[in-house]
């Protein structure tokens, strides 16, 4: 059968849902679970507006089958609450129309969680996965740097910078 009932773990909740195997995660989140924060900006893996976290890693939900996420923890923008990156997006006017915002926020949130110290190279490497047409991108970059400061102010600073020791190329 091309359909099956599956249990997805989303934003800390188990959700039972009947999916077509051909359904992307994005379609299931939006059409069947009412989680419309992730947006279908291109349905082609190009724009990043549908970015969600699977476990702790950002993925474009339009190029992932829903069935691939069974057994993993899915986090959508609706699962974030008062995070530093959301606060920083507000403070830095890092959005205008807001359509790309959930995708940028999810990607940047993962970046902030995975990297204690964030340099400009890494911000670009991560954020060039998403497209924004309204802002100049300067605001978004400022939001990521602001969020890192907010995060550091909330948590005790760590000396562990091991994840940032990988080779760097010139920008």
């Amino acid at each position: 059968m091309p359909k099956q009932e599956v249990s997805l773990s989303i934003n800390g909740e188990q959700r039972m849902v009947v999916i077509r195997f051909a359904d992307t995660l994005l379609e299931v989140l939006r059409g069947k679970l009412g989680l419309t924060g992730a947006k279908p900006g291109c349905n082609n893996g190009d724009c990043g507006a549908c970015t969600v976290l699977i476990d702790t890693c950002p993925y474009k939900a339009c190029i992932m089958l829903a069935v691939e996420t069974v057994g993993h923890e899915i986090t959508t923008v609706e699962g974030l609450h008062s995070t530093p990156i959301q606060q920083a997006f507000a403070d830095c006017y890092a959005f205008q129309c807001g359509y790309c915002t959930p995708g940028f926020i999810m990607n940047a949130h993962a970046l902030l969680q995975q990297h204690r110290v964030i340099d400009e190279y890494t911000i670009r490497e991560w954020l060039e996965s998403n497209i924004c047409r309204c802002t100049s991108y300067e605001e978004i970059g400022e939001a990521v740097r602001t969020a890192a400061r907010l995060r550091d102010a909330r948590t005790a600073p760590s000396l562990d910078t091991s994840v940032d020791t990988q080779q760097r190329r010139d920008l």
Binding site: G45, G48, T51, C57, P58, Y59, K60, I63, M64, N107, E125, W126, E128, S129, N130, Q166, Q167, R169
Partner: peptide, 23 residues
């Protein structure tokens, strides 16, 4: 891999974008 196969690392780094490369 930066020592074991740096050419591979550099080449695939230029494919698509990082979030797509996660997949």
């Amino acid at each position: 891999l930066g020592e074991a196969f740096p050419l591979l690392q550099e080449t695939v780094h230029e494919i698509a974008d990082r979030t797509a490369r996660n997949k």
